[in-house]
């Protein structure tokens, strides 16, 4: 996988389809994400945006179409799935920290057991990451003792500890009190500046406008429109996009 050009497509999704029983949740979704690119996915609830990013690391299985992550095709082969999961970090709406482990244990668990890193080294790296997300003093606490914003920052540090090439964010600020959204977005902005490839599902239009390289608008399981923030917020093309933007920017 080494030696690819800078603009190599690190995520390739081609005609991805997914059904929940009879319900057609993703309809021929195709999207390529370049290395170091930040793609923000927006759309009304139920539009399939969360489902789509969850197919990228196989938390949801797609039934037809093709997904290739960092050159690894996403098939039923467990080794491929695990290889892809090692390359992609994910941050969830509900944080999903492990409540029975301390913050530092949450962060070092996967590096020690999946990457086979030495405990000392994993802990040192974890502390650096906690510095980076601004809460090194919380290392020995349990998740239940932290605020929502702090928990989400730990979740970001936990994902980064695996040294992923791609970070997936599934509505990372939707479960947060308004006072805490800012601190999480700042971490994400810093991450984007550092050159991380990011796919972000969010309702934070300020973040989309300020940080995204491209914005993807989804509705009813389909990609409706893709464009730069400039294009999106000034000259949206599709009527559905215009309606959505009107309603949320009102």
């Amino acid at each position: 996988m080494a030696g690819h050009a800078e603009d190599f497509d690190i995520i390739i999704a081609k005609n991805v389809n997914k059904w929940y029983g009879e319900f057609h949740a993703l309809k021929n979704v195709s999207l390529d994400v370049k290395r170091r690119e930040v793609v923000v996915v927006i759309g009304p609830s139920g539009s399939g945006k969360s489902t789509f990013i969850r197919t990228i690391n196989r938390l949801e299985e797609h039934q037809s179409g093709e997904i290739v992550v960092d050159g690894i095709p996403l098939t039923h082969d467990v080794r491929n799935i695990e290889a892809i999961r090692m390359e992609t970090g994910m941050v969830f709406q509900q944080f999903n920290l492990f409540p029975h482990l301390t913050v530092i244990q949450n962060i070092t668990l996967a590096p020690i057991n999946v990457r086979k890193m030495k405990k000392r080294e994993a802990e040192e790296r974890a502390m650096q990451l906690l510095e980076r997300v601004g809460i090194p003093e919380q290392a020995q606490k349990y998740p239940g003792q932290l605020s929502g914003g702090q928990q989400q920052r730990v979740a970001i540090a936990r994902a980064l500890a695996m040294q992923p090439k791609i970070m997936l964010f599934d509505e990372p600020t939707s479960a947060l009190d308004p006072e805490m959204i800012r601190e999480v977005l700042e971490v994400m902005e810093e991450l984007a500046e550092s050159g991380m490839t990011m796919v972000v599902v969010t309702h934070e239009m300020g973040f989309a406008r300020g940080v995204a390289d491209r914005i993807v608008f989804m509705d009813a399981g389909e990609i409706v429109e893709i464009g730069t923030p400039e294009h999106f917020f000034t000259t949206p093309q599709h009527d559905r996009t215009k309606l959505f933007l009107e309603q949320i920017l009102k």
């Binding site: 690391n57 196989r58 938390l59 695990e82 999961r85 090692m86 992609t88 970090g89 994910m90 969830f92 509900q94 999903n96 920290l97 492990f98 409540p99 029975h100 668990l109 996967a110 057991n113 999946v114 936990r158 994902a159 695996m162």
Partner: peptide, 24 residues
């Protein structure tokens, strides 16, 4: 979400049970 977080981190089924699910 606990299962998903463990899977997203790349933990295999056995490690997922051993470190995340069974202790809780």
């Amino acid at each position: 979400g606990q299962y998903e977080a463990a899977e997203a981190l790349g933990l295999g089924s056995f490690d997922k049970l051993r470190f995340i699910i069974l202790p809780q």
